[in-house]
Design a protein around this nucleic acid. Structure first.
Length: 199
DNA sequence: GTTATGATTTACT
DNA sequence: GTAAATCATAACG
């Protein structure tokens, strides 16, 4: 069995690199004594410096994103549209508001429970193929906010790294000529994986 | 105290 | 393909 990633593992000053390395790792939760696991297949990096999409843009510190300003290795849960829980992993050291958004996972363990939670009547692809639903499938709630990822409730297990050939890095659309303003290719996913969202 | 907004999902035409 | 749902957070008065 793979080892739990240590908090220091996340405290890398290159968010994009952490995002890349998170691909293929195993995200685990332990809710009510039941463990569910899923392989991370899609991630997205967020920085508090130059990413307009980030809640921590321009070092804007609020109560909600405060955890992102802390040291890496903690869970940042954000409730979007009032319904969807988005799960982020805080990276980098204290003072740098950077995080990795987990966008897609491939169910490994506890699949039936996931479907039960989601009350799935839909194709399996939608079970965890999206940032909002994967959180729900794993039972992630707002009470996970600020949880350390080396605890017994939620953690990430190490796994064999994904080959570079299988990692797809995407840039934003229509930014080729606007290199200065364009955000870096900070979206990563595993090639030819059915659980990647939005395709 | 009140209002505007969003890192999305789902359903329907 | 497009449109609507829905609520916690943040900013403003």
């Amino acid at each position: 069995m793979a080892d739990k990633l240590k908090l220091s593992w996340y405290q890398n000053d290159n968010v994009a690199e952490v995002s890349k390395m998170l691909l293929g790792k195993i995200l685990c939760t332990n809710i009510d004594g039941i463990v569910t696991k899923g392989k991370i297949v899609e991630t997205e990096a967020y920085s508090g410096y130059n990413d307009k999409a980030s809640h921590a843009n321009n070092h804007k510190k609020t109560k909600r994103n405060a955890v992102m300003f802390g040291p890496g290795g903690y869970a940042y849960i954000y409730l979007c549209y009032g319904i969807h829980h988005l799960f982020n992993v805080v990276t980098n050291v204290e003072g740098s508001a950077e995080a990795v958004l987990i966008r897609g996972i491939e169910p490994i363990e506890g699949v039936e429970l996931m479907m039960k939670r989601r009350n799935m009547k839909r194709p399996e692809k939608r079970l965890t193929g999206g940032p909002g639903v994967l959180s729900q499938a794993l039972g992630i709630q707002t009470s996970f906010y600020g949880e350390a990822l080396d605890g017994d409730t939620i953690w990430i297990e190490d796994n064999e790294p994904i080959e570079d050939d299988l990692i797809v890095t995407t840039t934003r659309i229509g930014v080729e000529y606007a290199e200065e303003d364009a955000l870096k290719p900070w979206r990563f996913y595993i090639k030819e994986n059915a659980w990647v969202s939005n395709f």
